[in-house]
């Protein structure tokens, strides 16, 4: 009997290792090694023919001395400040509305979610057309001549509008699943006590959905710090407003694959990871003040 049990546990470990092997080998080759290699690259000088030479903190010194780098930081932060609070607020409003018992809510849910299934490249194309200064429909409707895409002071706002429009449905669907977990009995009790809908929202809905809201906030914040594709498609490299719109990941892409300075590019990406780490830590620390886990 004992022998049988040990035979079983041996076969269990064997199958365990076999079944995780593809994933673990893949992660080591595709992620762990590249992660360490990027750190190494960030301390190396890029030589011709794909060669590198360890040079210490040279890339970081160059990066911190670069105005373009600091501008990219400011752009990224500005983009997050514009998109995350407004985007989450609108997504929450949409989710609350979708959580009411009205006819056609599946249809409306599908409509808000639509941008998710369209490649950001195609989304950016049509918005560029809508925002076109001379012939764009938006300027025609507004009867103004706003340089949405070439004015350095506006260009990030333009990208932020498109980002909010793109993500509102996705965030709303995630928030909606949080809202649907709230028991109806809370609302019934509140109604009997004479609470208005608005009071119910602030005293029941908001605290009860706060754990989901926190997850969506972290996810949205991280993906906003990493924003790249949308800005890349909206702002060509020849656009005079490029440096005013360039995000950290756009800078990384240009340094690494256009200019060809992969050492500097790697330094930018390491910096961004550290930045994301700090922001996430602050959020986890800050959540104690507003996220309610006592349900």
């Amino acid at each position: 009997m004992k022998e049988k049990a040990s035979k079983r546990s041996r076969s269990e470990s064997m199958w365990g290792y076999i079944m995780i092997a593809p994933t673990i080998i893949g992660l080591l080759v595709l992620n762990i090694y590249p992660f360490l290699d990027t750190i190494k690259l960030s301390f190396s000088k890029t030589l011709p023919f794909g060669l590198y030479e360890l040079r210490g903190v040279q890339n970081y010194v160059k990066m911190f001395a670069s105005a373009e780098f600091w501008r990219a930081n400011m752009n990224t932060i500005y983009f997050c400040v514009l998109t995350v609070p407004i985007g989450l607020f609108l997504a929450l409003v949409v989710a609350v509305m979708l959580n009411t018992k009205i006819k056609g809510r599946t249809f409306f849910r599908a409509v808000f979610f639509l941008p998710m299934v369209v490649a950001p490249a195609a989304v950016a194309m049509v918005w560029k057309w809508i925002f076109n200064t001379e012939y764009g429909i938006l300027n025609t409707l507004l009867m103004h001549h706003i340089n949405w895409i070439t004015d350095p002071n506006i260009v990030i706002v333009t990208c932020a509008i498109v980002a909010i429009w793109s993500n509102i449905g996705y965030d709303a669907v995630l928030l909606l699943s949080g809202l649907q977990n709230i028991s109806q009995s809370y609302y019934e009790a509140a109604s009997l006590d004479g609470a208005t809908k608005l009071q119910q929202f602030f005293h029941i809905t908001l605290p009860m959905v706060s754990p989901t809201l926190f997850v969506v906030l972290i996810m949205r914040l991280m993906s906003s710090i990493k924003v790249y594709d949308l800005i890349y498609m909206m702002i060509e490299q020849s656009n005079p407003a490029l440096t005013s719109a360039q995000s950290l990941m756009y800078l990384f892409f240009r340094e690494s694959f256009v200019t060809g300075d992969r050492g500097l590019g790697s330094a930018v990406v390491i910096w961004t990871v550290a930045f994301i780490g700090v922001v996430t830590l602050v959020q986890f620390w800050g959540q104690k003040k507003w996220v309610n886990y006592e349900v």
């Binding site: 546990s9 470990s13 995780i20 673990i24 590249p34 992660f35 990941m249």
Partner: peptide, 30 residues
């Protein structure tokens, strides 16, 4: 399943999930 080193190996999965994909791109390309 139970096998030795399971937690350590699973932590590799968690670490990868926390890092943004751009950090892997240059070495992957190379």
């Amino acid at each position: 399943l139970n096998f030795k080193g399971k937690d350590l190996l699973f932590s590799i999965v968690l670490v990868q999930q926390m890092l943004p994909s751009q950090i892997f791109i240059t070495p992957q390309y190379q």
